[in-house]
Computed example of a mutant assay.
Amino acid sequence: MMRCEADAGEKGLLSRLREGDRHAFQTVYQRHKISIAAAIYRMVKDPELVEDLLQEVFIRLWEHRQRIDPGLPVGGYLHRIAQNLVCDFFRKLSRDKKMQDQVWTRIQPSAISVGERMEDREQQELIHAAINLLPPKRREVYILCKFESKSYEEVSLMLNINMSTVNDHIYKANQFLKKYLATRIVYLLLVGISHIGQVV
């Protein structure tokens, strides 16, 4: 973490913030909101969640303003708050099935145009690695339905299996992928957290 001294203008601003000056708080918010939001987005890939976490970052800043050291850049302090909030979110995700379902909805291949909307190469590789762990027939059915947009009826005819079997393959594939990704995506995204404090 950079520990260079804050410039004279920022020192005064932070001193006023420590004393409860709301105008100083708004100035800090305007100066840093974009960089903090961008850092959070790189990890969570969810604009709505970014908005919630960004708001919480600055709530924490105001609530703990007396901890601010006016001699140090406030950007680093804000990034540490953001880092802690994102870590807390993904720890909660690893324990909360409802949250896992929400993340799954955002990342499952049927909800994206593969190779177009997938902004994070590592997440894309993780999804494909998970799909490759499926049994061969289940993987084939899943790819045809989710990546090639084939209907269950089309897949049934192509593979000479009944539609209930297609449905069973999709259901079991989704259950496996959800469980697999729910644990591994937490690790993948937390890896990136170590970089958040470097962008100040």
Rank of each mutant, 00 (worst) to 15 (best):
S156C: 10
P47G: 02
H128Q: 12
S113P: 01
D88T: 11
L157K: 14
A182N: 09
F58Y: 11
M1D: 15
R80C: 05
I107M: 04
L133N: 14
A6Q: 03
K92D: 04
C145D: 02
L49P: 04
K146E: 09
A182F: 05
E48V: 10
M158Y: 09
A8G: 08
D46V: 02
S110M: 10
V141A: 03
D96E: 14
M43S: 07
E48Q: 10
T105I: 05
G75R: 05
C145G: 03
K98G: 09
E5P: 10
S151Y: 12
V166Y: 03
K150M: 15
M43W: 00
E154A: 11
L54Q: 02
Q100P: 02
C87Q: 10
L181K: 00
K92Y: 03
R18F: 03
K150T: 07
E148D: 07
Y29G: 11
G71M: 06
F89P: 00
V191L: 15
L134Q: 08
R117N: 14
S156Q: 14
S151A: 09
D96A: 12
Y180W: 12
G75P: 07
L177E: 01
D88P: 00
V191C: 14
L190K: 04
A24N: 07
S156R: 15
F89S: 01
G12N: 06
R65Q: 06
L177M: 14
R106Y: 08
L72R: 09
N160F: 13
Y152S: 09
N167M: 12
Q175L: 15
P47T: 07
A129Q: 12
E5G: 09
R31W: 13
K137E: 12
K45S: 06
S194Q: 13
L134W: 01
C87W: 06
Q124V: 04
W104I: 03
E19N: 08
S194M: 11
L61M: 07
L159Y: 06
M163H: 06
V103M: 06
Y171F: 14
R42P: 00
G75H: 08
G9E: 08
Y187E: 10
L78V: 07
L13K: 02
I131G: 02
D52E: 12
G115A: 08
S35E: 14
A37K: 08
K179W: 04
V44L: 01
M163C: 13
D69K: 08
S94A: 13
